[in-house]
Design a protein around this nucleic acid. Structure first.
Lengths: 195, 195
DNA sequence: TGTCACGCTGAGCGATCGCTTAGTTTGGGC
DNA sequence: GCCCAAACTAAGCGATCGCTCAGCGTGACA
């Protein structure tokens, strides 16, 4: 075991669930997997969490809120410079998807396992995320800084290349999350500039 | 039921598995789900397929081979024009990920459910796919047509935005697969051109 | 008409699933 | 020293899992 021994059991369970959901999927993970990874017996899970789906929701909610926060900060940091705003947004997004890669996977690939009310809450946050990206591009077009013929599609392409980092990225000394983030943010600016 | 009634049972089973794997995941799909969607009893699956994992492998293999074929055709169609070659590659890739979006999901998101020997075969095809994209960019750089400082990262960004289409795309009268493909291919060219 | 191969059913095997519950342990407040 | 709440275990519930298998029906061929 690691330093996780010192954390409260509730936290240890969430971290164990996070890891397992990320690399085996929600349905590929048993509550016994989670319990034993957290150093508890199978019944120990339910002292701290109502259900397996509830753990997924808690993790998914925290992950989505983190992304919304990052994008809103990026927006607030550069209120009058669309280029810097978009650059910072993509930088933060890619950084997060690389560095907290297991969080990113749960956020983007385990939505189908949420129940209906939980799914609705998450969908509202996802809508907000797309909206922030779209507005950043839109404002650059309005200011005449960006040249984009299809704002919505371009927003999807930029968020897509960023989100997909969570799928393929593996920690690497050469391709650090920071280097990736800078390069992807530069690419995003190319995507919104005239050819 | 649809016209699927006319197809041989083996094919019907594969199509049912495809659909279910795509929207509930491999572990979220039971062999009984597959059987009943194909109009068979639970035991009927094993007349035609050795195991559930074997069905996943067959689907994954066919999907990956389709992608390799599309990219190799794109390469052969424009052997001396890096811009047209890359444009065609991204166009084909996005078209496929939008149009055959359930195939794309199985291809990209169910790799972890494959057993070790099957996973190795698939990984070889995935390596080939990345190689084809990377070479297309590389040849443009060599020819002085593209301006790219990190070929590998750029290849990952371009394949990432294309692959991610499989995750979010839903059939839509306005955003047809064809329109998406053209727009994403244009964006890819922006990504490899000087700012 | 007899028969044999083949597609398929339906019962069911052993394992594992999410989750509950009775009971044990433990540590802080009186 | 006593007590109670909270943390946790071990056993086990009913359901469902992937998969097997004995047997049934049917169509092609002798």
């Amino acid at each position: 075991m690691s330093t996780d021994d010192m954390l409260p059991a509730r936290q240890r369970l969430l971290e164990a669930a996070q890891k397992s959901f990320a690399d085996k999927g929600f349905h590929g993970t048993s509550t016994r997997d989670i319990a034993s990874a957290a150093g508890l017996s199978p019944g120990g899970v339910y002292v701290h969490h109502r259900s397996k789906e509830d753990m997924l929701f808690e993790l998914s909610l925290a992950g989505h809120e983190q992304i919304v926060r990052l994008l809103e900060e990026a927006k607030a940091d550069h209120p009058d410079d669309p280029r810097q705003q978009l650059h910072r947004m993509v930088h933060q997004l890619v950084l997060m998807h690389a560095r907290d890669n297991s969080v990113a996977r749960v956020v983007n690939y385990e939505l189908a396992a949420l129940n209906a009310p939980h799914r609705e809450q998450i969908d509202a946050l996802r809508h907000r995320i797309q909206e922030l990206l779209r507005e950043a591009i839109e404002s650059g077009v309005t200011a005449g800084v960006f040249v984009v013929d299809e704002v919505g599609m371009t927003a999807n392409a930029i968020s897509g290349m960023s989100v997909d980092v969570g799928r393929w990225y593996r920690p690497d000394a050469h391709w650090t999350p920071e280097r990736l983030a800078v390069h992807f943010a530069d690419l995003a600016l190319r995507m919104v500039s005239a050819a």
